[in-house]
């Protein structure tokens, strides 16, 4: 889907597993998230992750809308997830 000559720069939500675990306390890469913008439902591991900037941005792999984004300073984390309509976290048996 990317233009010729432009290198796609995203990783998968899987690459943010550790940082997500810091927010949620557990591994949520297998959790299913629903996109507010387009309704697509996918595992958090399938999101497109942009991890090189000032914060982390997870986007819907179907429509590129921002699902979750967060940034941290020494003591504070700012998290915005209005693009994620819901998230279903199932505990491993």
């Amino acid at each position: 889907m990317s233009e010729p000559g432009v290198v796609p720069r995203h990783l998968d939500g899987n690459a943010a597993a550790g940082a997500l675990a810091e927010l949620f306390g557990t591994d949520i890469t297998g959790a299913m998230g629903t996109c507010t913008a387009c309704g697509n439902r996918a595992a958090m591991a399938e999101t497109h992750a942009y991890v090189d900037g000032p914060g982390v941005v997870l986007r819907c792999h179907a429509c590129d809308s921002v699902l979750m984004r967060w940034a941290t300073s020494r003591r504070t984390t700012w998290l915005e997830m209005s693009g994620l309509r819901s998230i279903e976290i199932t505990v491993a048996p």
Partner: peptide
């Protein structure tokens, strides 16, 4: 010159 992006690169 590092490339920082928060989304797909618009062309």
């Amino acid at each position: 010159f590092p490339v920082m992006s928060a989304g797909p690169t618009p062309v």
